[in-house]
Amino acid sequence: MPKIALFVTCVNDVAFPSTGIAAVRVLERLGVEVDFPEAQTCCGQMQYNTGYPAEAKPLAEKFAGDFRGYDAVVVPSGSCGAFVRDVHPRLLGADDPPPVYELTEYLVDVLGAQDVGAYFPHRVAYHPTCHSSRLLKLGDRPTRLLRRVAGLELVELPGAQECCGFGGTFSVKNPDVSAAMGADKVAHAVESGAEYLIAADNSCLMHIGGTARRSEAPIKTLHLAEVLASTADSPYGASA
């Protein structure tokens, strides 16, 4: 039985625990043994991308220590996954980190899964998020998984490749441009006719969802893991 360490990310830990729970459920359903190294906290992306590499480095070191010895690390966030994989080695110099997979990479590339036995009877649009598509190059992995979800109808998102405007501290340092981008993303999501906007990054969804709720736009946001965790026996929203 393959065994992985889940890096849930700090944002998911505090604000979106349901995404972490969903990731555990999907992986276990597929026969993966999941461990959660409890010392883990944050990858340091915010510090690094805001211009504080010295403050990011201790977190990269801590991450390396917390996940040392595992065969693989799985993370339900494209942005954090890309940061750990691309920037940590640069911050730490020579090291031999365990391979880090974003959740859909692990499902598709390592487990060879496409149909994960999910059931989600809703119309959804997928937002590819910038770091998932441009840094991790997830490509069609997420939509391949979504297309095999029973009951799910995948509709096209206009302007899908465009950034939602979150950008970490960009969202508060340049709030007007960030809000304008968010409003356009919400408008496109509504235009798509979807009930849910799905993505592999909760930080982007927090921005899009927060914008949608404030403007009372008829669109809900949901992490991909939660769609994949939803089954006919235990559909999304039925219980915690």
């Binding site: 969202s171 809000a179 927060g210």
Partner: peptide, 13 residues
């Protein structure tokens, strides 16, 4: 311009 997410009762941890 944005609502904060509904914080859950319990963390993942």
């Amino acid at each position: 311009t944005r609502d904060l997410p509904e914080l859950p009762k319990q963390t993942f941890r």
